[in-house]
Design a protein around this nucleic acid. Structure first.
Lengths: 250, 250
DNA sequence: ACGAGGTGTGTACGGCGTACGCAACGAGTA
DNA sequence: TACTCGTTGCGTACGCCGTACACACCTCGT
């Protein structure tokens, strides 16, 4: 019979997508209505990205986890870029809490540490550069709070924003470098930084044996806090804040 | 004969599995006639990425441009990650020139401005975070030169490296933010930032009308240097250098 | 009762990275 | 000279991806 030709093989897999009409006809009831929310989509996507990286967030994977057909997602988002924008805003919602602090410097410092922790919790954030603009609600909310903390210092708006941008640039840049190492460790299956060094020792030896990098070699041999990222980050952050404080007073 | 096997020379490093592309290309190519060089591959890939973005660099496109079969590339690289590593190192070669400067501060400042210009010339660099480690030869060479410029200040190696990392983090972070805007402009077909503002005016109005971002709104209304990225960057950079200078003297 | 429009779904298309297998070649050996 | 045999060059194929599109179905206004 005509209708059975291609469907038979597909039915062997049990794949619902290739059910014959007869099977579909006798299915008793409609599956329950899905009714997704954007928050659900964002949460599911963030879970996938946290667990397996941004590349694992595909429309198919996401739809599967939400119990929806792949194309069903397109009722809620225009495309994958929308999903990523939802994801970014969802994680910045974790920073919705206002920062308590005695003065602007403490507010900026705590904010910086919290932002770093946020990015480290969601390392895929640094890969979203290509997709998102800086106008998601929760990100604007963060900027607003930081701007407010600078009120009363007599700064013009441009300088105030630049101060915030400077700290933000340092935090994202430094954390991105950190994430690069974490990613490399995971890729190579290393637990500690020392494991990574062992794996890359041949490469490092090859580099150093050229003799072209004497100052770098001195650091490799003499540095004792190479893996103390917290120390490096806070030293850098405090330097940046020092510089800003000097500017603000002049 | 067993002695002829290429792997034997590789094995004398003790760790063939983790040889970098740099180590592998040092060995003379097996065939008497090598149709391709790694420099050619890198140059072609960089051209594509500069013109059309990193996503446009596919093994097929790259092979086509080089006049080679797709799989022919795999004789020269282990996979796409190798290609990206070659690309990153190729553009850092543009920074091979030593930086002239009276003191460490000027060297760091000029280096920062040059790095920013380099990233702006090759905006896809900020998307390579996920793929590359920080050990490509030309990148190490840059680090080495900067470390050398701090010699004689009496810094311990850890502090010296952190200083360089701090400036580098600021530069990459600030430039990444800039690139986000450039990309957004290109995506929306805007020529000037004002065009972009026009396109996003409804979104912005929607955000501001919520009344939840008073400080941010004041900036939007009062800022007059919102688009002067050079000014913002240099103000931030000079602040960072101020802070570092203060630390170094203490 | 029925038509229209919103919604969930499956199929299909053109891309991607790369595993794999096969043809052609060139040098060492008999 | 004839015969291996490792190596290179390349085409095919697999399983992913994002998403355009058409269709089946449900709900609701008339």
């Amino acid at each position: 019979m005509a209708g059975k030709k291609a469907d038979d093989t597909a039915d062997d897999t049990g794949d619902g997508a290739h059910e014959s009409i007869w099977q579909r006809m006798e299915r008793p009831a409609r599956p329950p209505r899905a009714a997704l929310t954007h928050a659900q989509i964002a949460a599911a996507a963030v879970e996938i990205a946290d667990a397996e990286g941004l590349d694992a967030v595909s429309m198919r994977r996401l739809a599967e986890r939400l119990g929806v057909a792949t194309m069903g997602l397109y009722r809620y988002v225009r495309g994958k870029d929308d999903v990523i924008e939802l994801m970014v805003d969802a994680v910045y919602a974790e920073e919705a809490r206002a920062v308590e602090g005695r003065d602007w410097r403490e507010v900026l410092r705590v904010s910086a540490l919290r932002l770093r922790a946020l990015i480290l919790r969601h390392p895929w954030l640094v890969e979203t550069t290509a997709q998102t603009g800086p106008l998601t609600p929760n990100f604007v909310a963060r900027t607003d709070r930081l701007l407010a903390s600078l009120d009363g210092l007599g700064l013009d708006p441009d300088t105030a924003m630049t101060v915030i941008g400077t700290v933000g640039a340092f935090v994202t840049g430094a954390t991105t470098a950190r994430i690069r190492m974490v990613r490399l460790m995971r890729k190579e299956g290393a637990e500690k930084m020392d494991d990574l060094r062992t794996l890359y020792s041949s490469r490092m030896r090859w580099l150093l044996e050229s003799g072209r990098y004497p100052a770098f070699e001195r650091y490799i041999r003499g540095g004792v806090r190479k893996d103390d990222d917290d120390w490096q980050f806070e030293l850098g952050l405090d330097s940046v804040l020092d510089g800003i404080a000097a500017r603000l007073k002049v």
